[in-house]
């Protein structure tokens, strides 16, 4: 199972790592049994994602996908952010091994969940 250069770059130096204190929205997905848990923190102003970060317990692909989704979502309006799909994440990462595609889906799910939580709270 080989990872692309881009995946390894994001795994080595993940973007937007860590917790955001007083986040406006949080989305956590995955479960310990499948092995991957992703948590996204969002700062939102005027319906725009001003800041976003992640914490992930998971494999190389899970960490790279978490990093990529934060990079993609940052600065976007909530509606635009919801348009990000797994294919975009996979493409931007230079591809993922087939058994790892679910990691990109998990990242999308985490973002959707965070935004849903935010909208419900409002």
């Amino acid at each position: 199972m080989l990872y692309s250069k881009k995946v390894m770059e994001h795994f080595k130096n993940p973007h937007n790592l860590g917790e955001i204190k007083n986040a406006d929205a949080v989305g956590q997905v995955g479960n310990p049994i499948c092995g991957d848990i992703m948590k996204l923190y969002l700062k939102i102003k005027d319906n725009k994602i001003k800041d976003i970060s992640f914490e992930t317990l998971g494999c190389g692909a899970a960490i790279a996908c978490s990093s990529m989704i934060t990079q993609e979502a940052k600065g976007k309006t909530l509606d635009k952010a919801l348009e990000i799909n797994k294919d975009i994440i996979v493409k931007k990462l230079g591809g993922l091994p087939a058994p790892k595609i679910h990691c990109s889906m998990l990242a999308i799910e985490a973002l959707k969940k965070a935004i849903k939580n935010y909208k419900e709270k409002k």
């Binding site: 795994f11 998971g58 494999c59």
Partner: peptide, 24 residues
């Protein structure tokens, strides 16, 4: 800790080992 990411990090430091993680 998830085993595959631990293994990959170790590999970057020149250490070769293995894991029973599903992800790997």
């Amino acid at each position: 800790i998830e085993g595959e990411s631990l293994l990959l990090k170790l590999d970057m430091e020149g250490v070769a080992c293995s894991t029973g993680s599903a992800c790997a």
